[in-house]
Structures are given as structure tokens and as C-alpha cells.
């Protein structure tokens, strides 16, 4: 049996790329979650150990990383709602493309709210 399939099932456009983005963001969030439970577990070691590690989350580089994390979560959440609607709403499949652009719009609005707030926290010195 050949290991590489002839031709491709991938159809491109909004449907495929939203599916790709959902997978990529999902994996990123999952690996962060593993690390995040481990760093939080340091509260059982000592206040100093926890504060030292959480202090690294408050540096500018990690502050930018948190923007990426929130962006991944927000896309995954909104596109997840779109997937639920495609599966359970009778007209979902018909409007799946439109719904992706709604997801993108809501993503932009949400990030436009979060971005200045986070930049203020990380770079604003307060």
C-alpha cells in the first residue's frame, strides 16, 4: 500500500483553512495548558518558587506570547461555535463560509479590545 495517497482530499478555501487553523490553535493551546498546570502547581512548593516562575510571565517577551495565546484561544472558541452551528443548525453548512468571516470579524473586535489593555499592562509600567 503506497504511503502517499494519490491526489488530495483537501479542498482549499474557507472550509479547509479554518479547519487547519482550528487544529494548529488547538495543539498550541494544549501544550500551553500542560505547561500552565505545571507552573501553577508550584504554589504547592513555596510562595517564592511560584512567584519566581510567574514573574517570567510578566516580562515583555512573555507578555507578547500571551497575546498570541489569547489570539489562539479566541479564534478556537469562535470557530468552535461555528463548527457547532455547522453540525447542529440546519442552515449551518450553507452558511459556513459566511460564518467564518463573522468569526474573523469577532476575532478582530475581541483582539482590538484585548491588545491595548495587555500592551498597557506589559509596557505601561502599571
Amino acid at each position: 500500500m503506497p504511503s502517499a495517497p494519490a491526489g488530495t482530499l483537501y479542498r482549499g478555501r474557507e472550509g479547509m483553512w479554518s479547519w487547519v487553523a482550528h487544529r494548529v490553535t488547538g495543539v498550541l493551546i494544549f501544550f500551553f495548558l500542560l505547561v500552565h498546570v505545571l507552573d501553577t502547581a508550584l504554589v504547592r512548593v513555596s510562595p517564592e518558587a511560584y512567584n519566581a516562575v510567574i514573574g517570567t510571565y510578566q516580562t515583555p517577551i512573555m507578555g507578547l506570547g500571551e497575546i498570541g495565546l489569547v489570539a489562539a484561544i479566541v479564534f478556537h472558541a469562535f470557530n468552535g461555535v461555528r463548527i457547532i452551528l455547522v453540525d447542529f443548525w440546519a442552515k449551518g453548512p450553507k452558511y459556513q463560509r459566511t460564518m467564518l468571516w463573522v468569526v474573523v470579524g469577532l476575532f478582530v473586535v475581541t483582539m482590538a479590545g484585548f491588545l491595548p489593555r495587555q500592551l498597557m499592562h506589559v509596557f505601561g509600567g502599571n
Partner: peptide
Amino acid sequence: NLVSGEGVNAIDFGFVG
């Protein structure tokens, strides 16, 4: 944890406690 108050800067052992 990230948006309200001082955001990520407010998180420390006391915050979790």
C-alpha cells in the same frame, strides 16, 4: 487573570491564595 485590574502583573502567590 489577564484583563481586569493590573492584569498579569497582579498574579502572584497571594493572588492565587
